[in-house]
Amino acid sequence: MPDSSTRPRDAALGTGLGRVLLLVYGIFALSASARALVQISTHFDEAPLAYLLSAFAGLVYLSATVGLAVGGIRGRLIALVSCSIELIGVLAVGLLSIADAVAFPDDTVWSKFGSGYGYVPLVLPFIGLWWIWRHRPRPGDASS
């Protein structure tokens, strides 16, 4: 990245590419939560597991958004945990929804590795984790 040389090392987690991630995580937090809300409030009995997973995914995206926005050591930790859960979630649900379609009669954000969302849910945690890793506290930092 050409701008990495001009970007201060201690720049906040939520600036630069981090702000792009903030927007994308925000979009997913909203869409997954809203989807879960509609599904659970209107036809919960049809696929309870899938709808609870939708709600869980919404919460994970929400906490990742908050972590990125808060920044600092605590925000970074929140974002790190959220993105890790997100990665495990999208891989596990992606595999299960293909292997055991009966348990997932209705889609979630993470079904089939997020194919309904242009596979963005599959790519997003990798970018998020890479960005958080790049912002790990370094031995020389006063704040670490």
């Binding site: 630069g16 590419l17 702000r19 792009v20 927007l23 994308v24």
Partner: peptide, 19 residues
């Protein structure tokens, strides 16, 4: 998105608008 892009006067601001 425009608000976020205004806060980010770098190439990433343009990416925010693009997304």
């Amino acid at each position: 998105a425009a608000y976020l892009a205004r806060l980010e006067p770098t190439r990433w601001g343009s990416l925010i608008l693009g997304i």
